[in-house]
């Protein structure tokens, strides 16, 4: 009994340690950064299609759709690159988290409306949005938050900041 009570917290702590591991955060950081880079490439190449996807959600006024289709893929690309390389990763991962939250909310609204449109997340020809899409986005949002709170490994900017610390 005593052994069990002693072992249990140890296991919990180890699990907690594992769950909050900075290396896990680093892996998730690479994954999320890469995901957004990948997602942005198609949108940058085909902005008109992406604009169509945005419009299909019927949430953005028509005069803002073009600008949004023009800027958002670049925001994804640049943030993704910063997240992967570890330059201002907190801000970049926050941007990505914000976009994930926005996408999730959009998907929820769309699902509630019952409008059968594609997600438009990676390219224009996708299956219509389902709750699976929603959960996938929730998972990704959780990953970005994990990265935000626990990531501290292999930041490229530390190459410069370490020198300042040494001072």
């Amino acid at each position: 009994m005593t052994t069990a009570t002693q072992t249990k917290p140890g296991l919990t702590a180890r699990l907690k340690e594992l769950a909050t591991s900075p290396w896990l955060a680093f892996a998730l950081r690479l994954y999320m950064g890469g995901l957004f880079i990948y997602a942005s490439v198609y949108k940058i190449n085909y902005p008109a299609e992406f604009a169509g996807s945005i419009a299909s959600y019927e949430l953005v006024p028509y005069w803002a759709v073009g600008a949004m289709a023009m800027v958002m893929p670049w925001l994804e690309l640049i943030s993704g690159v910063l997240v992967v390389t570890g330059i201002r990763p907190k801000a970049a991962i926050l941007v990505l988290a914000g976009m994930m939250a926005l996408f999730t909310v959009t998907i929820v609204i769309t699902l509630l409306r019952g409008v059968p449109i594609g997600c438009g997340c990676f390219h224009s020809m996708e299956d219509p949005i389902t709750w699976r899409t929603f959960f996938r986005d929730i998972l990704w949002l959780g990953m970005t938050l994990h990265v935000y709170f626990y990531d501290r490994k292999l930041h490229l900017e530390h190459l410069f900041l370490v020198k300042v610390k040494e001072l």
């Binding site: 902005p47 023009m70 800027v71």
Partner: peptide
């Protein structure tokens, strides 16, 4: 400032790319 810079760079890059790309979107209805 991080967000401002990110946004500014993204806007600038998007605008330039859209301006240069033949498949760019029309910003003005």
């Amino acid at each position: 400032a991080d967000f401002a810079i990110l946004l500014t760079v993204s806007v600038a890059m998007g605008f330039l790319f859209n301006w240069a790309s033949p498949s760019g979107v029309n910003l003005i209805p």
